[in-house]
Design a protein around this nucleic acid. Sequence first.
DNA 1: GATGTAAATCGTAATCATTCTGAATTGGAG
DNA 2: CTCCAATTCAGAATGATTACGATTTACATC
Lengths: 136, 136
Amino acid sequence: MNLEKAWKLLKNNGFKETEKRDRILRQFSGNDKYLTARDLLDVLQKDYPGISYDTVYRNLATFTGLGILEETELSGERHFRMQCESAEHHHHFICTDCGKAKEILLCPMEMLTESLPAYKVESHKFEIYGTCPECQ
Amino acid sequence: MNLEKAWKLLKNNGFKETEKRDRILRQFSGNDKYLTARDLLDVLQKDYPGISYDTVYRNLATFTGLGILEETELSGERHFRMQCESAEHHHHFICTDCGKAKEILLCPMEMLTESLPAYKVESHKFEIYGTCPECQ
DNA sequence: GATGTAAATCGTAATCATTCTGAATTGGAG
DNA sequence: CTCCAATTCAGAATGATTACGATTTACATC
């Protein structure tokens, strides 16, 4: 996902172009790390000292709902990052140190949908945690 | 995991046998569902009206630490259930309706440890969510 | 460019899960 | 039975997230 695509999606869904939204999208755009709402708030406060929690959380929810951001729960906190460019379904190795994600193309679901007869599968989560080469 | 094994573990690690602990373990023992701390508190309050959050959370932490319970994060809340009997490493299909878990023996990690050179893998999470046959 | 209006933001309080604290109680070793 | 550390209680504190009324802003329309 890049900025143009994100704004196109937002406009098509009737969302207005605001400074704060632009600032938030730019933050994620130049950064492949997972960020918490607080991380983001801390960054935005440098440019917008009076920025509200509401603005941060509401926009994170909007962006996630439109598929601009993706979300995961790490140690009890929601973390967000820009949706990957790659069209294929994939999973992530996530560095617990720096928050960076590496794509994993293998999906275990392909191998076991037929081994769950009578179960209605709705979603799945596969994530690998550890330390990336840079952080070791 | 059964009650005897659980108590053996607790005793071996110097934990005392208390009414509350026994009640909590029995709750999980007769039940293969994932429960939140609040679910558990609600159940315990019928027998022990004055039971404290502290007791519930502290014991959940103790039991999880000893491997008596296993834990997962579902929609922002920690959920607990008795550790499975099976010795083999496995994952779960979790019913989002009733919380019941079905064991999945396939582990995707086996297929990709060598495809992550230079990455230090520490843990992983693979869970499938949906509706079990009984809940459809 | 001025105006109207719904959307967005602000400022702050409320909520919810979880953790902490200090006092009171209890299991079980001796 | 006595004693002491472990456990529990009661309630306050914390931290993430959501809610809300008042204010401001984007932008469609004139």
